[in-house]
Amino acid sequence: MTIDLLNRGTLVENTRPAANPANRENSDILGRIGSLETRLARKPSEIAAAQSVRYRVFVEEMGARLAPDAMRARRDVDGWDEICDHLLVLDRAIDGEEEDQIVATYRILRQEVAAAANGFYTASEFDIGPLMRRHPEKRFMELGRSCVLPEYRSKRTVELLWQGNWAYALKHGISAMFGCASFPGVHPEEHALALSFLHHHAAAKGEWASGALPELHRNMDLMPVEAVNPRKALLALPPLIKGYLRLGAMVGSGAVVDHAFNTTDVLVVLPISSISDRYVNYYGADAGRFSS
């Protein structure tokens, strides 16, 4: 889903005073592995560069069809970009400006920011209102627009993206993350094994239950449970969804076909309390695992 293009850039919060700009910039690094580092975008030009990376992945690689202005600009842009924080992974070994070094990105939206503006992007596909009303004491954040350039699709890039998300969640006292995760193509039956596995073995239930908007709902229960081979199903899952499941995520009921992005989407819900101690210890209770 896209809405009218907006020309303003996101202002990235930085509450730490610093006399030396270099010290200020080093202070907002959320993780570093080798020549790769992760942090939030600092200025509108970096957000524009991240949108160009998204265009390369979503349009040129995956066949998405964006609004005409976005296609002309060769940037994946929508109205949520101006209210979101933009997590970046940069390869500092690339010559040029920092905008030229962006190789991966995630878009992050906190509940209080969404409530004061356009709402959550996820709400255009999934009925998340009841989920949040059942947890008035919790703080939610949305993850979206995850993409990595092909040559950087490695374990360490994904680890840095997750380190950034984890550090951000700790900083803002987040209780749960959610967002749309995608299968390629607009025919859910082509992913019958994987979708059925999620339906039978990873469904969000009880207080965490949520699902597709009724008018968009596509059935995920495409195979009986006894016909689902878990090992083969895991191999058929997109890496991003598989990574969410390893962390302890659940999946909402019903898929949604997004014709504009040429994807079949599922709702992923990840309570912070569900993340296993193994991953909490790995990424660091103080978010410092990759900071050196």
Score class of each variant (00 low, 15 high):
residue 30 L to H: 01
residue 217 H to N: 14
residue 35 S to N: 10
residue 83 I to P: 01
residue 113 V to E: 13
residue 246 R to D: 07
residue 290 F to Y: 14
residue 222 L to S: 09
residue 42 R to Y: 03
residue 11 L to C: 04
residue 71 M to H: 10
residue 21 P to L: 12
residue 33 I to H: 05
residue 126 F to W: 03
residue 27 S to Q: 02
residue 171 K to G: 07
residue 30 L to W: 02
residue 233 A to K: 01
residue 35 S to L: 02
residue 137 E to Y: 09
residue 190 E to R: 11
residue 185 G to L: 04
residue 249 A to V: 04
residue 210 S to A: 15
residue 223 M to F: 07
residue 55 Y to R: 04
residue 267 L to C: 08
residue 116 A to F: 00
residue 51 Q to W: 05
residue 39 R to A: 13
residue 244 Y to E: 06
residue 69 D to K: 15
residue 57 V to Q: 02
residue 95 D to Q: 14
residue 8 R to W: 12
residue 268 V to M: 12
residue 95 D to M: 10
residue 205 K to A: 14
residue 187 H to I: 10
residue 94 I to E: 07
residue 274 S to H: 14
residue 114 A to R: 07
residue 127 D to K: 13
residue 249 A to K: 08
residue 173 G to E: 04
residue 206 G to R: 09
residue 244 Y to L: 08
residue 256 V to G: 06
residue 55 Y to C: 06
residue 148 V to L: 10
residue 179 G to E: 05
residue 284 G to D: 01
residue 27 S to D: 08
residue 147 C to W: 04
residue 262 N to T: 01
residue 209 A to K: 12
residue 81 D to V: 06
residue 197 F to G: 09
residue 98 E to H: 13
residue 227 A to Y: 00
residue 218 R to T: 12
residue 32 R to L: 02
residue 49 A to H: 07
residue 73 A to Y: 02
residue 71 M to Q: 12
residue 162 W to A: 11
residue 4 D to A: 15
residue 215 E to Q: 14
residue 274 S to A: 14
residue 47 I to H: 11
residue 248 G to H: 12
